[in-house]
Design a binder for these strands. Structure first.
Lengths: 119, 119
DNA sequence: TTTATATCTCAATATTCATTGAGATATTGA
DNA sequence: TCAATATCTCAATGAATATTGAGATATAAA
Protein backbone atom coordinates (compact mmCIF):
# COMPACT_ATOMS: atom_id res chain seq x y z
CA UNK A 1 0.00 0.00 0.00
CA UNK A 2 1.82 3.11 -1.25
CA UNK A 3 1.84 6.13 1.02
CA UNK A 4 0.73 8.86 -1.37
CA UNK A 5 -0.30 12.40 -0.48
CA UNK A 6 -4.04 11.82 0.17
CA UNK A 7 -3.24 8.81 2.32
CA UNK A 8 -0.60 10.75 4.26
CA UNK A 9 -3.12 13.54 4.77
CA UNK A 10 -5.57 11.10 6.37
CA UNK A 11 -2.81 9.58 8.48
CA UNK A 12 -1.61 12.97 9.72
CA UNK A 13 -5.18 13.97 10.57
CA UNK A 14 -5.61 10.74 12.52
CA UNK A 15 -2.40 11.37 14.47
CA UNK A 16 -3.18 15.02 15.17
CA UNK A 17 -5.56 14.24 18.01
CA UNK A 18 -4.23 13.53 21.50
CA UNK A 19 -6.40 10.50 22.29
CA UNK A 20 -5.62 8.90 18.94
CA UNK A 21 -1.89 9.54 19.11
CA UNK A 22 -1.85 7.95 22.57
CA UNK A 23 -3.84 4.99 21.23
CA UNK A 24 -1.33 4.41 18.45
CA UNK A 25 1.53 4.52 20.91
CA UNK A 26 -0.24 2.09 23.22
CA UNK A 27 -0.86 -0.27 20.30
CA UNK A 28 2.71 -0.05 19.06
CA UNK A 29 3.83 -1.03 22.57
CA UNK A 30 1.28 -3.84 22.63
CA UNK A 31 2.87 -5.57 19.65
CA UNK A 32 1.29 -7.64 16.88
CA UNK A 33 -1.16 -9.37 19.24
CA UNK A 34 -2.92 -6.05 19.76
CA UNK A 35 -5.36 -5.10 22.51
CA UNK A 36 -9.12 -5.17 23.08
CA UNK A 37 -10.97 -1.90 22.49
CA UNK A 38 -11.91 -1.64 26.16
CA UNK A 39 -8.33 -2.04 27.34
CA UNK A 40 -7.18 0.64 24.90
CA UNK A 41 -9.92 2.98 26.09
CA UNK A 42 -8.84 2.40 29.69
CA UNK A 43 -5.19 2.99 28.83
CA UNK A 44 -5.90 6.38 27.26
CA UNK A 45 -8.76 7.26 29.62
CA UNK A 46 -11.49 7.51 27.01
CA UNK A 47 -15.15 6.52 27.39
CA UNK A 48 -16.35 3.46 25.51
CA UNK A 49 -18.07 5.67 22.98
CA UNK A 50 -15.10 7.94 22.54
CA UNK A 51 -12.69 5.01 22.25
CA UNK A 52 -14.89 3.44 19.59
CA UNK A 53 -15.01 6.70 17.65
CA UNK A 54 -11.27 7.25 17.69
CA UNK A 55 -10.37 3.62 16.96
CA UNK A 56 -12.70 3.69 13.96
CA UNK A 57 -11.00 6.90 12.84
CA UNK A 58 -7.55 5.29 13.10
CA UNK A 59 -8.77 2.26 11.20
CA UNK A 60 -10.26 4.39 8.41
CA UNK A 61 -6.91 6.13 8.15
CA UNK A 62 -5.24 2.74 7.76
CA UNK A 63 -3.03 3.01 10.84
CA UNK A 64 -4.61 0.17 12.82
CA UNK A 65 -6.41 -3.08 12.02
CA UNK A 66 -9.15 -4.85 13.92
CA UNK A 67 -10.47 -8.36 14.33
CA UNK A 68 -13.22 -9.82 16.44
CA UNK A 69 -12.16 -12.31 19.09
CA UNK A 70 -15.08 -13.63 21.07
CA UNK A 71 -16.87 -10.67 22.69
CA UNK A 72 -13.94 -8.34 22.19
CA UNK A 73 -12.65 -6.49 19.19
CA UNK A 74 -8.88 -6.54 19.07
CA UNK A 75 -7.04 -3.62 17.54
CA UNK A 76 -3.41 -3.74 16.47
CA UNK A 77 -0.99 -1.24 14.98
CA UNK A 78 -0.36 -1.42 11.25
CA UNK A 79 3.40 -1.17 11.38
CA UNK A 80 3.77 -1.04 7.61
CA UNK A 81 1.49 1.98 7.42
CA UNK A 82 3.30 3.75 10.25
CA UNK A 83 6.72 3.17 8.76
CA UNK A 84 5.34 4.11 5.35
CA UNK A 85 4.26 7.44 6.78
CA UNK A 86 7.63 7.99 8.41
CA UNK A 87 9.30 7.23 5.09
CA UNK A 88 6.97 9.63 3.27
CA UNK A 89 7.96 12.34 5.71
CA UNK A 90 11.66 11.49 5.47
CA UNK A 91 11.57 11.60 1.69
CA UNK A 92 9.90 15.00 1.75
CA UNK A 93 12.29 16.23 4.37
CA UNK A 94 15.49 14.86 2.90
CA UNK A 95 14.78 15.78 -0.70
CA UNK A 96 18.11 17.29 -1.68
CA UNK A 97 19.22 17.64 1.94
CA UNK A 98 20.34 14.19 3.12
CA UNK A 99 23.25 15.58 5.12
CA UNK A 100 20.94 17.72 7.24
CA UNK A 101 18.18 15.19 7.66
CA UNK A 102 19.85 11.82 8.05
CA UNK A 103 19.62 11.00 11.74
CA UNK A 104 22.92 10.42 13.53
CA UNK A 105 23.83 6.70 13.60
CA UNK A 106 23.83 6.44 17.40
CA UNK A 107 20.20 7.62 17.57
CA UNK A 108 19.03 4.96 15.11
CA UNK A 109 16.97 2.04 16.36
CA UNK A 110 18.96 -1.19 16.33
CA UNK A 111 17.74 -4.77 16.01
CA UNK A 112 19.39 -5.73 19.29
CA UNK A 113 16.81 -4.23 21.62
CA UNK A 114 19.05 -1.54 23.04
CA UNK A 115 17.48 0.81 25.59
CA UNK A 116 15.93 3.96 24.22
CA UNK A 117 14.79 7.23 25.68
CA UNK A 118 11.27 7.39 27.03
CA UNK A 119 8.68 9.05 24.79
CA UNK B 1 14.52 21.09 19.97
CA UNK B 2 13.25 17.70 21.15
CA UNK B 3 10.24 16.27 19.36
CA UNK B 4 8.00 15.33 22.27
CA UNK B 5 4.37 14.30 22.12
CA UNK B 6 2.73 17.75 22.35
CA UNK B 7 5.08 19.07 19.70
CA UNK B 8 4.39 16.09 17.45
CA UNK B 9 0.67 16.64 17.93
CA UNK B 10 0.99 20.23 16.66
CA UNK B 11 3.16 19.11 13.77
CA UNK B 12 0.71 16.39 12.71
CA UNK B 13 -2.16 18.87 12.92
CA UNK B 14 -0.24 21.29 10.72
CA UNK B 15 0.44 18.57 8.14
CA UNK B 16 -3.12 17.26 8.15
CA UNK B 17 -4.43 20.03 5.90
CA UNK B 18 -4.03 19.76 2.13
CA UNK B 19 -2.86 23.33 1.50
CA UNK B 20 -0.33 23.17 4.31
CA UNK B 21 1.06 19.76 3.32
CA UNK B 22 1.51 21.06 -0.23
CA UNK B 23 3.24 24.17 1.15
CA UNK B 24 5.70 22.08 3.13
CA UNK B 25 6.51 19.99 0.10
CA UNK B 26 6.99 23.11 -2.03
CA UNK B 27 9.32 24.55 0.62
CA UNK B 28 11.30 21.34 0.97
CA UNK B 29 11.81 21.41 -2.79
CA UNK B 30 12.78 25.08 -2.61
CA UNK B 31 15.74 24.37 -0.36
CA UNK B 32 17.31 26.47 2.39
CA UNK B 33 16.85 29.73 0.47
CA UNK B 34 13.11 29.40 0.85
CA UNK B 35 10.38 31.21 -1.09
CA UNK B 36 8.34 34.39 -0.74
CA UNK B 37 4.85 34.01 0.73
CA UNK B 38 3.25 35.10 -2.54
CA UNK B 39 5.14 32.54 -4.59
CA UNK B 40 4.15 29.80 -2.16
CA UNK B 41 0.53 30.90 -2.33
CA UNK B 42 0.67 30.79 -6.13
CA UNK B 43 2.30 27.35 -6.09
CA UNK B 44 -0.47 25.86 -3.96
CA UNK B 45 -3.24 28.02 -5.42
CA UNK B 46 -4.24 29.78 -2.22
CA UNK B 47 -5.42 33.36 -1.83
CA UNK B 48 -3.09 35.83 -0.15
CA UNK B 49 -5.16 35.69 3.01
CA UNK B 50 -5.36 31.92 3.02
CA UNK B 51 -1.64 31.55 2.32
CA UNK B 52 -0.82 33.88 5.19
CA UNK B 53 -3.07 31.92 7.53
CA UNK B 54 -1.60 28.54 6.64
CA UNK B 55 2.02 29.74 6.65
CA UNK B 56 1.50 31.22 10.11
CA UNK B 57 0.04 27.89 11.19
CA UNK B 58 3.08 26.00 9.90
CA UNK B 59 5.41 28.46 11.61
CA UNK B 60 3.56 28.13 14.94
CA UNK B 61 3.95 24.37 14.61
CA UNK B 62 7.68 24.86 14.13
CA UNK B 63 7.85 23.29 10.67
CA UNK B 64 8.87 26.42 8.76
CA UNK B 65 10.77 29.61 9.51
CA UNK B 66 10.33 33.11 8.12
CA UNK B 67 12.43 36.21 7.56
CA UNK B 68 11.67 39.54 5.96
CA UNK B 69 13.61 40.39 2.83
CA UNK B 70 12.66 43.76 1.43
CA UNK B 71 8.93 43.78 0.70
CA UNK B 72 8.66 40.00 0.81
CA UNK B 73 8.55 37.55 3.67
CA UNK B 74 10.57 34.47 2.86
CA UNK B 75 9.53 31.13 4.32
CA UNK B 76 11.78 28.10 4.43
CA UNK B 77 11.36 24.52 5.63
CA UNK B 78 12.76 23.63 9.04
CA UNK B 79 14.48 20.42 8.03
CA UNK B 80 15.48 19.56 11.59
CA UNK B 81 11.86 19.71 12.74
CA UNK B 82 10.68 17.59 9.81
CA UNK B 83 13.30 14.92 10.35
CA UNK B 84 12.64 15.08 14.09
CA UNK B 85 9.00 14.30 13.41
CA UNK B 86 9.91 11.43 11.11
CA UNK B 87 12.21 10.08 13.81
CA UNK B 88 9.47 10.39 16.43
CA UNK B 89 7.19 8.36 14.19
CA UNK B 90 9.87 5.80 13.43
CA UNK B 91 10.65 5.32 17.11
CA UNK B 92 6.98 4.79 17.89
CA UNK B 93 6.56 2.51 14.96
CA UNK B 94 9.66 0.41 15.41
CA UNK B 95 9.45 0.07 19.17
CA UNK B 96 10.19 -3.62 19.57
CA UNK B 97 9.60 -4.31 15.88
CA UNK B 98 12.68 -3.19 14.00
CA UNK B 99 12.57 -6.11 11.58
CA UNK B 100 9.11 -5.15 10.37
CA UNK B 101 9.61 -1.42 10.28
CA UNK B 102 13.16 -0.86 9.09
CA UNK B 103 12.83 0.27 5.50
CA UNK B 104 14.54 -1.92 2.92
CA UNK B 105 18.10 -0.68 2.22
CA UNK B 106 17.46 0.09 -1.46
CA UNK B 107 14.63 2.46 -0.55
CA UNK B 108 16.80 4.45 1.87
CA UNK B 109 17.90 7.92 0.89
CA UNK B 110 21.63 8.06 0.22
CA UNK B 111 24.02 10.97 0.59
CA UNK B 112 25.02 10.73 -3.06
CA UNK B 113 21.95 12.38 -4.54
CA UNK B 114 20.56 9.31 -6.25
CA UNK B 115 17.27 9.72 -8.16
CA UNK B 116 14.09 9.08 -6.23
CA UNK B 117 10.51 8.37 -7.16
CA UNK B 118 8.21 11.34 -7.66
CA UNK B 119 5.90 12.22 -4.80
C1' DT C 1 5.16 62.42 -0.68
C1' DT C 2 2.39 59.60 -3.41
C1' DT C 3 1.76 55.17 -5.44
C1' DA C 4 2.49 50.34 -6.02
C1' DT C 5 3.69 45.99 -4.07
C1' DA C 6 3.76 42.26 -0.63
C1' DT C 7 1.88 40.50 3.24
C1' DC C 8 -0.77 40.42 7.30
C1' DT C 9 -4.98 41.01 10.38
C1' DC C 10 -9.68 40.93 11.43
C1' DA C 11 -14.53 39.66 11.51
C1' DA C 12 -18.15 36.88 9.57
C1' DT C 13 -19.53 32.55 7.98
C1' DA C 14 -19.41 27.77 7.02
C1' DT C 15 -17.60 23.45 7.92
C1' DT C 16 -15.55 19.91 10.38
C1' DC C 17 -14.54 17.57 14.59
C1' DA C 18 -14.92 15.82 19.53
C1' DT C 19 -17.79 14.58 23.47
C1' DT C 20 -21.69 12.82 25.72
C1' DG C 21 -25.28 9.77 26.91
C1' DA C 22 -28.85 6.59 25.37
C1' DG C 23 -29.54 2.66 23.32
C1' DA C 24 -28.64 -1.04 19.60
C1' DT C 25 -25.97 -5.27 18.33
C1' DA C 26 -23.09 -9.31 19.01
C1' DT C 27 -21.26 -12.90 21.91
C1' DT C 28 -21.03 -15.85 25.81
C1' DG C 29 -22.48 -18.34 29.91
C1' DA C 30 -26.11 -19.62 33.42
C1' DT D 1 -34.01 -18.17 26.88
C1' DC D 2 -32.27 -14.64 29.98
C1' DA D 3 -28.66 -11.90 31.80
C1' DA D 4 -24.04 -10.13 31.49
C1' DT D 5 -20.28 -8.34 28.83
C1' DA D 6 -18.00 -5.81 25.09
C1' DT D 7 -18.44 -2.74 21.60
C1' DC D 8 -20.72 0.03 18.34
C1' DT D 9 -24.12 3.60 16.50
C1' DC D 10 -26.73 7.66 16.64
C1' DA D 11 -28.21 12.33 17.61
C1' DA D 12 -27.35 16.55 20.06
C1' DT D 13 -24.24 19.91 21.57
C1' DG D 14 -20.21 22.52 21.78
C1' DA D 15 -15.53 23.58 20.14
C1' DA D 16 -12.07 24.13 16.73
C1' DT D 17 -10.85 25.11 11.98
C1' DA D 18 -11.01 26.95 7.16
C1' DT D 19 -12.47 30.51 3.83
C1' DT D 20 -13.56 34.97 2.29
C1' DG D 21 -13.22 39.75 1.55
C1' DA D 22 -12.10 44.28 3.39
C1' DG D 23 -8.73 46.82 4.95
C1' DA D 24 -4.32 47.73 7.79
C1' DT D 25 0.81 47.75 7.75
C1' DA D 26 5.47 47.75 5.89
C1' DT D 27 8.64 48.51 2.17
C1' DA D 28 10.28 50.36 -2.02
C1' DA D 29 10.07 53.14 -6.22
C1' DA D 30 8.51 57.24 -8.89
Amino acid sequence: MTMDEPRALDAFAALSQETRLKMVRVLVQAGTDGMAAGAIGDAVEASSSSASFHLAHLERAGLVRSRRESRSIIYSADYAALSGLAEFLMRDCCQGHPAICTPAPQTRQTATGSPRRDL
